[in-house]
Design a binder for these strands. Structure first.
Length: 271
DNA sequence: CTTTTGACCTGACAGC
DNA sequence: TGCTGTCAGGTCAAAA
């Protein structure tokens, strides 16, 4: 489900309910996510106050004075804020209980998400330490992306999906950004000119910013914390539009599967 | 080192 | 109605 804009939307949605609030415990209904939820998590969290709610790549980090709770939504996860009397349903695997009577609930049918705890600086956690720059930060610029892409033979689409190169870009926004930059997603990353990389960086920043402002993309089941969908799916120009007409030139949009993931492009507008 | 493949898991949907 | 097969927003770990 969630790429950077959806995780950012979730993060912003939960923040007002969590910031400076005290944790009174946790409920684990199904420990078996991508990695097992640590046992005794509720015990180690109880009594701590959440002093920060941040996002890094597609991870949400809840900081307390003793450590950091790391959340990942996988393919199908979403977060809700509900009151303690709200009955848990089939895929509600984890609750973080707050002293206010609200709780943060993780729902994740496919269970590719994660709930982890670290007492180290989370930037050096093994899952976070090698992640590339945030695409909306100033350190993600054309010089950076140009240098990193040199001599890479993988497709530029796959390059953008590689979290070590740039954080948080998934298949939707990789395809959308490449369309906006006029770049064929099947091109070898290392062969793009500096001028085209510049256009791509600009397209990534614009696309992600617009998607965040629209509250993310709801394809199947993404919901914001308040239960409302995102709206960016109405603005998708290329993703999921195989055999439909390009909004720019009217020609048919093509799709291919590379490395098990669909890729979409307009053969006329993307060269 | 880079690139590719397999693995994890459920639900929605198409076709028979 | 119900079965089977395919596909899906992620990404790690291991193989090539």
């Amino acid at each position: 489900m969630p790429e950077l804009p959806e995780v950012e939307t979730s993060c912003r949605g939960i923040t007002p309910f969590l910031i400076n609030q005290k944790i009174v415990g946790a409920v684990v209904r199904n420990r078996q996510l991508r990695w097992p939820i640590p046992s005794r998590l509720g015990k180690s969290l109880a009594g701590q106050t959440i002093h920060s709610v941040t996002r890094r790549a597609k991870y949400i980090l809840l900081g307390t004075h003793k450590g950091t709770l790391i959340l990942h939504l996988g393919m199908s996860g979403h977060l809700h804020i509900v009151t303690t009397d709200t009955l848990a349903e089939k895929h509600d695997h984890f609750d973080l209980l707050l002293s206010t009577g609200y709780l943060l609930r993780l729902t994740d049918p496919r269970r590719f998400g994660a709930v982890l705890w670290t007492t180290k600086d989370p930037a050096y956690h093994r899952l976070l330490q090698d992640i590339g720059p945030e695409p909306l930060s100033d350190s993600f610029d054309s010089d950076y992306l140009y240098q990193r892409s040199r001599h890479r033979q993988c497709t530029i689409r796959d390059f953008l999906l590689n979290g070590r190169m740039v954080a948080g870009i998934g298949n939707i926004y990789a395809n959308e950004s490449l369309y906006r930059a006029g770049i064929r997603p099947t091109l070898a990353a290392g062969r793009l000119s500096h001028r085209r990389v510049t256009a791509l960086v600009s397209a990534i920043k614009t696309t992600l910013t617009e998607a965040i402002n629209a509250g993310g993309t709801t394809l199947r089941d993404f919901k914001n914390v308040d239960g409302r969908p995102g709206y960016f799916q109405h603005d998708l120009l290329i993703y999921g539009r195989a055999n439909e007409s390009c909004r720019h030139c009217g020609n048919d949009i093509k799709a291919k599967t590379i490395h098990g993931r669909r890729l979409y492009y307009c053969p006329t507008c993307q060269t």
